[in-house]
Design a protein around this nucleic acid. Structure first.
Lengths: 229, 229
DNA sequence: CCAAAAGTGTTCACGGTACACCCATGC
DNA sequence: GCATGGGTGTACCGTGAACACTTTTGG
């Protein structure tokens, strides 16, 4: 007990809701706890914040440690503080959410496969602590944000087809979109670079590939453009 | 130094960006610090979080203590954590923003008038700590949110005219709106109750008064309605 | 009667939506 | 040649934007 204060201080942790997408569903990464409390329960990856570390740094570090992913979209979600949310002591947790590309990073669970796994967002097991609430908050944020900010691209490989992009929105927003209207809308935004390449190794007509043009997006934004799906 | 921990714990505070509106501008409440550090500098109202108090409770309590306002719209904004943001020790602050009605509550600065004052958002003095960044974040959030959530009403008295409402949006969004289009849009939403009353004590034609119909709003939302200005 | 703000309709352009068939490729 | 997904255009409707004058009230 080396650290003393005149007034009680809460412990502060970060927890990460890490979203990934494959062809079937939107998923999040969970880890199986190896310690009490909630031993053997699934939980969001997370941990304590170092005393000289910003929350952002701590969240990036946790993501790195749990998944091996170094660079990805990450954003602060919300801070959860209900006294009693951790049975051990007063713990305030700052939640982040990240969007990662499941195909490019074949998540090398440093932690072994039994203790880390991807779960479809509509089939999440009981979670430790108040992590279900954190997950719900993250999913709602993602659903809201994906419609008016071009963050969905972070879930796709750098080169993607319009069908992949459409599927992404359909999975996240949980509603079907009209193919012709979707393409018209996306292409009219002039946010995508046509790579003049096509898919390989598919057993049907190969789709054209595009990439998200970040530079162009920033320029459009300055001119008052509003992204919206 | 009565409170000891095995690992160092940061201190946790809440800070509140309290927005109010009068006929000239959007304002925030600042208080003048009476202690080091940043003695005599203006700062956002805030303070330490009790060890058995949720952040929400702490923010509500601070608002109460500084302004006497008990009930108002309040929402968590963001958590600021840069090491070094407080010169004394590691302090993580969870910022909230509140919308209050300047006309109904004649803010009784329990703290005397010299040490608490309203400042127009486009004339904010240098602030203590990283409070300028917190303020900017709050203003951006408000500007973004006011367009697609009916939170602007929280800044107005319960009974208001359409001109007051339009002025509100013009002040927050910093752009003029067309009167006829604005009225058409707002009234078509059917979110306002026409009170069949008019202003009193004005030296020109008295405007009709309306109130925001919260119940109706919730019903519309369930049916897929999207508020947008 | 003047000042000050309230209140009121129409036209036009654009973007959203609905909708069905042919094309390319691999097996 | 068939299965699988890729790719394309048009017509209609509703909403957003531009725009100016009359009405009411108090002083």
């Amino acid at each position: 007990m080396k650290y003393s204060y005149e007034y009680p201080h809460p412990a502060v942790t970060v927890d990460c809701v890490i979203f990934g997408l494959d062809s079937e569903s939107l998923k999040i990464l969970l880890i199986k706890r190896k310690e009490e409390p909630f031993i053997n329960k699934w939980a969001l990856p997370g941990g304590f914040v170092g005393i000289n570390e910003s929350l952002e740094d701590a969240a990036v570090r946790e993501l790195q440690e749990e998944t091996g992913i170094k660079k990805s979209y990450m954003e602060q979600l919300y801070t959860f503080s209900e006294p009693g949310r951790d049975p051990r002591e007063r713990v305030i947790t700052v939640a982040y959410y990240a969007l990662v590309n499941l195909e490019e990073h074949q998540i090398n669970a440093k932690t072994d496969a039994l203790s880390a796994a991807w779960f479809s967002v509509d089939d999440i097991p009981k979670l430790a602590f108040d992590h279900e609430m954190i997950f719900e908050t993250a999913l709602n944020r993602l659903r809201g944000k994906v419609r008016y900010q071009p963050i969905g691209f972070e879930l796709l490989p750098k080169k993607f087809s319009l069908s992949q992009l459409q599927k992404l929105y359909e999975l996240i927003l949980e509603k079907p979109l009209d193919k012709r209207n979707f393409r018209k809308k996306i292409l009219n935004m002039e946010l995508l670079t046509d790579l003049d390449e096509v898919q390989e190794d598919v057993n049907h007509r190969a789709a054209r590939l595009y990439s998200f043009n970040e530079k162009r997006y920033r320029k459009l934004i300055k001119d008052g453009f509003n992204f919206e799906i």
